[in-house]
Amino acid sequence: MTMRPLACERCGTRVLVEKFSPVHTAVQWTSDARECPVISSLHLGIGDRERECEALHRSIDRAVREHELSESRIEPPRGEAIPRLH
């Protein structure tokens, strides 16, 4: 599966999303994250882990519930298939 476009239901900011499990979501901003009014109000720097928007999380969860966005079913490698970094 690849990342899918999704708009925040609150502000319309568009991101790319891939949902791997109920607790693992990848989000790629297609523009400056500070265009989101929630994130811009936090006054945090680039890379701060606290930069998140609850409305965007709700938008992603709604998209999964309504089957607009499906969870990827990627099985992680196991045993000998796990790449080793030596």
Rank of each mutant, 00 (worst) to 15 (best):
M1P: 03
R4W: 06
R4Q: 08
P5S: 00
A7E: 05
A7C: 03
R10G: 11
R10H: 10
R10E: 12
C11H: 09
T13M: 08
T13L: 05
R14Q: 13
R14D: 13
L16T: 05
L16K: 06
L16P: 01
V17L: 01
V17D: 01
E18F: 03
E18L: 05
K19N: 05
F20M: 04
F20S: 06
H24P: 04
H24T: 10
A26L: 05
Q28E: 15
Q28N: 11
Q28I: 15
W29H: 07
T30L: 12
S31C: 09
E35W: 01
E35T: 06
E35C: 00
C36K: 06
C36S: 10
C36G: 14
V38K: 01
I39P: 05
S40G: 09
S40V: 12
S41E: 07
L42M: 11
L42R: 05
H43M: 11
L44S: 10
G45V: 11
G47T: 15
D48H: 08
D48P: 00
E50R: 08
E50N: 08
R51C: 15
R51N: 14
R51H: 09
R51G: 15
E52N: 11
C53F: 02
A55H: 12
H57I: 08
S59E: 03
S59T: 02
D61F: 07
D61S: 08
R62P: 14
R62S: 03
R62F: 05
A63H: 01
A63F: 02
V64Y: 03
R65I: 15
H67E: 11
H67S: 02
E68K: 10
E68S: 06
E68Y: 11
R73I: 13
I74K: 04
P76C: 10
R78H: 12
G79S: 00
G79L: 02
E80R: 10
E80K: 07
A81C: 13
A81N: 14
I82D: 05
I82C: 05
P83V: 06
R84Y: 14
L85C: 11
H86T: 13
